[in-house]
Amino acid sequence: MEVAVSIITGLMILGALYAIHAKDLLSSVIACGIVGYSLVICFLLLKAPDLAIVQIVVDTITLIIMVAVVLDSSREELFLKPDTQGYVTTLTGVFLLAIFLYFFVISVQSLDILGKGSLRMAEQYINGAAQKTGSANLVTGVVFDFRGYDTMGEAVVLVTAVLGVLTILRIKGKK
């Protein structure tokens, strides 16, 4: 299992590198789709069918939005002017890499080995959840019952985002 997930993650890394380096923006966006759809396979391997369904839908919508934006433009990543502040970028990158590496090492040491985790926290959600919530699907039970306020907040964020997109696309800019 871990080997399969690692191989697919390796393919995702290759797709991500291509997405970042492609000259044509359309290829870049579609390579981003490769990463998203590989994530669906990972979710299925990790026994998360709900996530796989949602990720397929969301990734398709994201891809459509991005392709619409790119097709509306000249598509090329234009000429590369020499970057006068390249050393600033390099320094920022090294600095951030050091910080993230430090915290990654700390947090991974405190984690369980993959696949050997305990259900200490989730036992409250699993035991008798089907009777408490009336839902055979435990994920649905958690999302819509135990953490219903979270889901309400999520809906508020979605409405706000839709209103924001409509507002941004409608206003007339100053010339």
């Binding site: 990720q55 259900l119 959600y125 435990l138 958690v142 999302v143």
Partner: peptide, 17 residues
Amino acid sequence: DPLPQALVLTAIVIGLA
């Protein structure tokens, strides 16, 4: 564990937004 899956379900939709 259903709990991380529920969290990711929320996060995916927020990511779309």
